[in-house]
Every structure is written in C-alpha cells, then in structure tokens.
Write a protein that binds this DNA or RNA. Structure first.
Lengths: 214, 214
DNA sequence: TTCTTTCATATTGTATACAATTTATTGCAA
DNA sequence: TTGCAATAAATTGTATACAATATGAAAGAA
C-alpha cells in the first residue's frame, strides 16, 4: 500500500502501541476515538483494524467492536514452546550452513551485550539479547521463518520481560549461554548447542508467567 | 468481527480463491469488480483486502492497487524448509506427550488413506495426507503453532501439489512412511520417526518446485 | 435495595460521493 | 512504423451520511 496512506499511518500507530503494551490486552479500540486522535476518517481506522486483525493483534467481538488480543497464561506457554521450536530448528539449520559472517555477527552481539551489562545499561543489554536470537533466525536465510518469528511477537514479548526484570544476576548467565551457543556452533558441537539453547530458553519461562497472572 | 458482515463475506470469498489457486500470484484485485461481483460496497472489499494483507496473502503496490502475492521458487524452498522445521518440532513434542488418542487418530487416518488409494480416490487420499500432517501439529495442543501452520498455507500448498500429481506410485511410499512414523511414535523410537519424517518431506520437494517454474 | 423496562446515546456496518491519482487510448509528429 | 503528448477512462484514497445495533443510564415495580 502507499506508504503514506492514512490507513497505513493508523495501522503503524496502533500496532506500535499494542506491541509496546501501551495498549493492553482486552482494551477496546473505538473507531471514532482513533479517527479523531489521528485526524482521519473512520474508514481509514477501520482498514487499519482489519489489517491488525489479519495479523492477529486485535479481534472483533461477535457483537461488534475491536479489541486488543488478550495474552492468557496458555498463550505465554504456547509462545514459549513455539519459540523453542523455531529457535532450535533454526539453530539446526545453521549447523548445516557454516556461515562465518553469521558467527562473527553473533560474537559481536555477545560483546555488545557484555559491555552494556557491565556499564549497567540493562535496557540496551536486553535489546542485544533480542538481537542475538533474531540473528539466529535470520541466519537461516528463510524469510518466511523470519516473518513468522516476528509475527509471533516473540521479540517484543521478550523485550517486555527483560525490561521488567531489571535486577540482573541473570544477565551474567545469559551472556555465558549465548557465548556457549556460539562456541558450539563454531566447533560444530550440536549437542552442546542444543542443550544450552534449550536450557537458556527454559530459564526464562516462569518469570514470563508471572507477567500475565491476574 | 460479525461473522456475517459483508467485509467478512468478501474476505472469505477472496481468500478461498487465492488459496485454491483460482486467483494466481500477481493477479490484480480491483475493488470495484469485486464489489460488483459480490454486491457490496467498495469499502467492504477494501476492508477485506486489508485483512488479507495482514495475512500476507495480498500486497498493495506502491502506486496503489492490490495484488495477490507471488510464489517464487525461493518461497517454495522456504515453505518446504519451514514445514520440516515445524513438523519435526511438533513430532518431538508428541514424543514427550504420549497421547494414546492421538496415535489412534493417526492410525485411522492412515487406514483412510490406504483405502482411498486402493479405490483410486486420489483426491481423497491427498486430503487424508494433509490431515495426517495437520493432526501431528494439532497433537501438540499448541494453538499458536497450529495457526502458524495454517497461515503458512502449507496445507493448501500441499493439496495443490497432490491434486496435480495424480499418478501415484508415490502414494504407496507415502502410506508406508506415515505408518512408520506412527509405529515409531508408538514404540518411542525417536530416531526412526525423525529420519522417516525428514525423508518423507524431502521426497515431495522437487515435484513442488516444478509447480512454480515460469 | 435490586431487578426490569424504557429510552437516549454511542458505536458500528454500510453505502455513496468526490477529489486525486494511475492507466489506457487517441491523435499527431518524426 | 515508432515515440510522445494530450486527453479520456478507470481506479484508488478519503470523507461524509445514515440506518442498524449495542451500550448505558434513568425510572419505576417488586
């Protein structure tokens, strides 16, 4: 679509707010309010909502109305599981590829991570953490996989958790695990890489769960 | 959204046509034509298109216009790879679950498959084939994984190939492989299940590629 | 009080209208 | 013939209007 269409503007705006949790699950999105807030007509807003529905970020109630999708405890579990499935699969593909540039990138990201942690930039460290995992997915060169990973909102979900935790004895462990995965990739040690990744992902699980209890 | 809204009607209609290849990749979707064809206003059509864009089934040109997304050779490769990743991951989860009912279901599907092949119902056999793989995904109980699998258009893609092939010395092999996977699941033999599934999926690859060459 | 019923308000679903843009067609000159 | 400009037609992006539906508040009965 035209990059500058009004519908696109609304889409981007609402999407950002949802993904950054400024709009919480279950919240109702009223067309006229958004139309007014962004100075566009309701049809543009409607189109944006439809597109978000296609992305599963909002849903329409049976009796009308557009709502931000809720995250249930079940969802968190499913996302976690899905994430492991995707990342393990991607990692396996990387073992078949032997991409030097990729390994270099991962190492650089690890260094960024360490550095930010040591300086107390936990937000930045969290970003580096996300990037590490995204880079693994991208490394497969499979654009559909990348887009699924993105559309599952895994990266954002990840961010949110990290941002909240804050106090980070965990960070040191994260750093080590990342590095161990890279090392295993370098030395072609699949078992080590696999075990570390799974352990790494598992570690985050129960913290994640606390986020949605209500 | 209201199940019976006009936008939804258009959405379902166009979606079906795209997924069943009645609308081919690259085809332009003109709002007014569809509005007329389905006797609705253009806004309903527009909303439907936006939702399809969210699902990545269509895209909007920079100079306007809505087009059915093209399948490139690259896409086919990516889908195939993604499919393996998802199914292998799902299968692994099944090994951890030990779901008797699931195994029973898979066996029944295998029987349906054999029966239809033996009677020459190749279309039906193909449906059973799709169902076998979908059941594996569903078996994980992870609704997000299921929806990703569906949204990747893997089942449809699969159908299309099967429908075209028609002549089926392959079917016997397919049958055996399906049964072998179930047997391995029953006897908890992961390596056999894994090898068979991978081989099974690989077998379909180059036939799939012929479909998009142009 | 608490529960209905009634009515006013808010919100949505849909159609139509129109300006802006893109695409196709014609006519003309090289 | 080909290339190019001018113009007509088609198509899109957006706003407004309005009927249908849903929501919420007030009034009255148990």
């Amino acid at each position: 679509m035209k990059e500058d269409s009004l519908a696109n503007k609304v889409y981007l705006e609402v999407r950002k707010k949802i993904l950054s949790s400024q709009l919480v699950g279950g919240a109702r999105l009223v067309e006229s309010s958004w139309a007014e807030k962004l100075s566009v007509s309701r049809v543009a807003v409607r189109e944006a909502f439809m597109r978000l529905a296609g992305e599963n970020l909002v849903e329409f109630g049976e009796k009308g109305g557009c709502f931000v999708k809720k995250m249930t405890v079940e969802d968190v579990k499913d996302i976690r599981e899905l994430r492991e499935l995707l990342e393990v699969g991607a990692l396996k593909m990387l073992f078949a590829k032997k991409d030097k540039a990729l390994i270099k990138d991962l190492e650089l990201i690890c260094n960024d991570f360490s550095e930010m942690v040591s300086k107390g930039y936990y937000g930045g460290a969290c970003e580096a953490d996300v990037r590490f995992h995204e880079r693994i997915i991208q490394g497969t060169g499979n654009s559909r996989l990348v887009s699924i990973y993105q559309n599952s909102n895994i990266p954002l979900f990840h961010m949110k958790i990290g941002a909240i935790l804050g106090q980070m004895e965990d960070y040191l462990e994260t750093d080590q695990e990342h590095r161990q995965i890279v090392a295993a990739l370098k030395s072609n040690d699949w078992d080590s890489a696999y075990d570390t990744l799974v352990k790494h992902l598992d570690r985050g699980e129960h913290e994640a769960l606390e986020l949605v209890e209500d």
